[in-house]
């Protein structure tokens, strides 16, 4: 095996230069040239240029006046992100969901959307199913003194329907619109 050592080390170094140095640098250069916004993390800035977050990462939004993203097992930590990893039959899961559902339930609006009481896989899910956003509209309308219809229009405006996946609405986009009063 020892006479193989020289080609082994030399091949590994050569392939490291190709796949570990040249390849990521070429991709970085091409990505920065063609899609700079996405390549740098889809960052979102407000009108004054302050960095407010990434369109792709959920952020905590407490208070009745905001759309709430899905619950996060890691409390929206981004370094590192994390999931609950509770088994379907773990009593802790049913207990947590029961408590959250009690707190969230709006009389007359039917059962609580499951997305609002289950933690996402990443803990940073930036989206909600449209029904889970609409479920929060009455609360936000009351807190902000806005008409319910305007908020429902806002949700509809921001809903995306990809042909190969479920309809979703971006929570940060909704909250930015609320903050800027845009489209309301």
């Amino acid at each position: 095996m020892f006479h193989h050592l020289r080609p082994a080390i030399a091949s590994l170094l050569a392939l490291t230069l190709v796949t570990g140095v040249a390849y990521p640098l070429v991709v970085t250069a091409l990505a920065q040239a063609t899609f700079p916004e996405q390549a740098n993390g889809s960052l979102v800035r407000d009108a004054r240029g302050t960095l407010r977050g990434s369109a792709l990462l959920a952020q905590p939004a407490d208070g009745p006046q905001w759309f709430h993203p899905r619950p996060s097992a890691a409390d929206y930590a981004s370094v590192p992100s994390g999931a609950s990893n509770l088994a379907a039959d773990n009593p802790a899961l049913a207990e947590r969901i029961a408590a959250d559902a009690r707190a969230l339930a709006v009389p007359g609006q039917g059962p609580v959307p499951l997305a609002l009481v289950t933690t996402s896989a990443s803990g940073l899910d930036p989206h909600l199913p449209p029904a889970a956003a609409r479920y929060q509209v009455a609360r936000i309308a009351a807190a902000r003194g806005l008409p319910v219809e305007a908020l429902e229009r806002l949700v509809a405006q921001h809903t995306r329907h990809p042909a190969v996946g479920p309809a979703v609405v971006n929570v940060l986009a909704l909250n930015l619109a609320l903050a800027n009063r845009a489209g309301l």
């Binding site: 991709v27 920065q32 390549a39 993390g41 960095l51 407010r52 369109a55 952020q59 981004s78």
Partner: peptide
């Protein structure tokens, strides 16, 4: 490149700090 187009980052920059709408800090 297709993945970058969809939103996957490709950068050698250090992590950045954002000021969230609700008044917190987020490391990206």
């Amino acid at each position: 490149l297709l993945l970058v187009w969809q939103g996957v980052p490709q950068s050698l920059h250090a992590y950045v700090q954002a000021h969230t709408l609700a008044g917190g800090e987020q490391s990206i």
